[in-house]
Amino acid sequence: MSKVIVVTSGKGGVGKTTSAAAISAGLAQQGHKTVVIDFDVGLRNLDMIMGCERRVVFDFINVIQGDAKLKQALIKDRRLDTLSILPTSQTRDKDALTSEGVEKVLEELREEFDYIVCDSPAGIERGAQLAMYYADEAVVVTNPEVSSVRDSDRVLGLLNSKTKRAEESGADPIKSHLLLTRYDAKRIGEGEMMNVEDVLEILAIPLLGVIPESTAVLRASNVGLPVVLDDKSRAGKAYEEAVARLTGEQIEMRIESEERPGLFQRLFGRTA
């Protein structure tokens, strides 16, 4: 049974595309057949982060409009043979997405892939709504600061109301997970940013992982390598664990912290 996972946040710049790339690469690394779709029509970024921007011929919009077959548009990753990328158009805008078109493409992908990761654009408009509409699960990417948390909360509201699973009676609601990114233990220790508990209290969804602020993330983006494939970095490791939790593994949450011990224990108790 294939799963459609939307990576979304509301706010821009929190690390959605980085996370979508890392999660899909992580799933593929575990051997799951995975495809990652860029829904950010007009601001094509995913293919750059995945390092395949020079191989884009046809895109998501071409497929939706019937100008190309899905097989022609899918790009197979050179590092992981279980991973494919469906890039988006740089020249069109979000109006080119149609609900029927997205549904048709997703149905076709469901037949072939175990996981379909949708990289949502920022905001809560059409592009973001279509990216989440057919999702089975959601990864809500949040930075530990108030405006990001508030936007994530808004997105959680939309996930519970403006999606297929919310509108269909009898369907289970979308399973939402929190991915806390750009976590800077030093700044949190100094009280400049919110700690994990504060964020969890407001959003009230299970914690998938905490990705530390790391120079490895930008470096990986620059060279087009999903950060999860960068074995040495802490961020890569954190993504790997988040992906494992996403597939149902029980892994203890390890958060680098300058706070008192005991926090890990309490957090784990909360999300388990």
Binding site: R150, D153, R154, L156, G157, N160, S161, E201, I202, A204
Partner: peptide, 22 residues
């Protein structure tokens, strides 16, 4: 959640759970 509006147009409203800012 933030941005949601819950209306009880003919009586009391009882919320069991957190109510977010907005």
């Amino acid at each position: 959640r933030s941005g949601q509006t819950v209306i009880a147009d003919r009586g009391d409203l009882v919320i069991v759970g957190p109510v977010s800012s907005g």
